[in-house]
Design a protein around this nucleic acid. Structure first.
Lengths: 341, 341
DNA sequence: CTGAAAGCGCTTACAG
DNA sequence: CTGAAAGCGCTTACAG
């Protein structure tokens, strides 16, 4: 067991000063060709690598960013991580992943814990509970300390920072319009409760499309799901008690469950009911029938968020100006088997 | 914009020494009740939090662990992260997630980058490429430097360290036996190429079960999938060109694709073909029909791995003895709709 | 009870 | 060309 070698040890071994070793390794012209080579050879032999922590302390930056997501189980968030990783690694940054588990407290603890030097900035999507409480003091706190934050997907207008979103309203509008264009009028919506920002926006898009086409919205056809546990029953009542020809679901779990329930009730998809989901994940792709869906490019969102964050991090102090952008990522409707042709 | 306050600033403000501040905040009895209170009140007011990086440098440990996984897209790995997070957070550790993208180089770079002080230990599952090359020098290197490593799922006998696995061979044996007990004899296997450790073991379990029941293994019924891109065609030939009554697939993507292809070929699941998958993920649960599967408890594996790693980290140097354990996590067969009753 | 000093591992302005 | 010193932010053994 061979411990990591430090500058000090190399210096001692070669009988020079620590400064000389440090400069030699950074190829400073201050040092004679001769010593430089000697030191470099020795360092290579002992596989010297500078200690990241010492560098972080010295430079007051850690070259590490943190992404906080509500749940890793949602494939969408997993793809965002993937996008963030991709850019971060390319630019020499490490990524710490934190899960808030949809809990406000966990979100706060994570942020406070890491904001003390461990990381240089945050990329985050709000937890359900945070959106419900509308308490963002932990985020303001961090921003006030001069640490950049980029929010994505589940964002809030109450915080001023860079954001990466899709146009949820428009995407939902388009999806609904797509169903209307197929000739459907009895279109149900399976959404989340309204305090989830994206759920609310998607509901609004749906309503707008109906209105635009002079279809009367029917509250019975709108399901707002609160808990993630037994939503299947709610979906079952929705389908059993109403005469529907199509369903728009705001995520793929709801969409695939609608298919299951429809089958159970003896209705075929897409022959009897057409279904559109949201988030182009593996479920939509592999389900039978595969699901027509609004694709929300998670990889791209993650990449964009990482680019924006790193840009802020690498800006020089003097040329810094407080200015925030909101980037809107394009979505598209991926047509598959769950809607009739 | 208010920068983080340091001990130095507090000391200056209160006109005492840095040591006094530090000790007061750690409630040392060395310091008078009076000064302690004064300092603590001031620190609270300014929301002082010690700098993690400085602590890491001082203590020579970062209270951060890294988990390296091949792909986040596989739901199984996502659940392992969740388990690791859970334990780590409880014990005051941060988690860095690295994706190797099944690439040897990325695995090496990630490890080398982080092994220099940033983290205290690794939890990892080998990338495909690493398993194929059988080059583990980066891992030995890290272990030789005294940094603990826990491997899970995709492990290798070539490295001595703690491991968390399931009994892949036995689980596959049981799954196959389950099909045989239903009266099936023409059972196909959809597996990975043999250099993926778990794929190989599962194939062996399948073969053992056949042999045990005097069923002749038929190489035509064994599909070893290499690339993740167009495996659908291979599965289609398998089902189209053979007379099958059941399929055992070593992951859920293969299982759900088999269902899709079977449907396409006009065979019904489970009436015409029964299918068993591996990994109890969301796909298995939400697929129609839902998939009977060997559940591989990712959360538990992650938790166990984290517990083992942190135990090693917190052992005192003197009582340390080189001793490695391999923990086997129980699996179970979850019966659903894709096999006949 | 308080504080100066050394040290974790590094970098860099400055002196010689 | 080389090295001593200061400093990043902290802790702790030691002196007074």
């Amino acid at each position: 067991m061979r411990r990591k070698v430090t500058l000090k040890q190399i210096a001692k071994e070669l009988d020079v000063s620590i400064s000389t070793v440090s400069k030699s390794l950074r190829d400073s012209t201050e040092i004679s060709e001769d010593t430089r080579q000697k030191v470099q050879a020795f360092a290579k032999l002992y596989n010297y690598k500078p200690n990241n922590i010492a560098l972080s302390l010295k430079n007051r930056k850690s070259k590490t960013i943190c992404i906080i997501i509500p749940e890793i189980i949602h494939h969408f968030f997993a793809t965002v991580i993937s996008g963030v990783e991709h850019i971060a690694n390319k630019k020499g940054y490490n990524v710490i992943v934190c899960l808030s588990d949809e809990s406000f407290d966990k979100e706060v603890i994570n942020m406070e814990m890491l904001a003390n030097g461990s990381i240089d900035g945050f990329i985050m999507s709000l937890s359900k509970e945070t959106q419900q409480k509308r308490d963002f003091h932990h985020i303001t706190e961090v921003i006030n300390q001069g640490m950049p934050v980029v929010m994505f997907d589940r964002v809030t207008n109450d915080i001023l920072c860079d954001k990466v979103i899709i146009d949820d309203n428009l995407a939902a509008f388009n999806a609904t319009q797509f169903l209307i264009d197929k000739g459907f009028k009895k279109i149900a919506l399976i959404s989340t409760v309204d305090y989830v920002s994206v759920g609310k926006l998607r509901t609004e898009g749906y309503l707008k499309a109906l209105k635009n086409n002079d279809i009367l919205a029917n509250e019975n056809l709108i399901l707002r799901i609160e808990d993630t546990d037994n939503f299947e029953n709610h979906i079952e009542s929705l389908i059993a008690n109403n005469d529907l020809d199509a369903i728009f679901a705001v995520n793929e779990i709801f969409a695939v469950t609608a298919i299951k329930v429809a089958n159970k009730l003896g209705k075929k998809v897409p022959e009897d009911i057409s279904i559109i989901g949201f988030t182009d994940g593996i479920i939509s792709k592999y389900s039978s029938p595969s699901i027509t869906t609004v694709s929300q490019n998670g990889i791209k969102m993650g990449e964009k968020a990482a680019i924006m964050l790193i840009e802020k991090l690498e800006i020089e102090e003097e040329e810094y100006e407080e200015q925030y952008k909101t980037e809107v990522i394009e979505t598209e409707l991926v047509e598959r088997e769950s809607t009739i042709g």
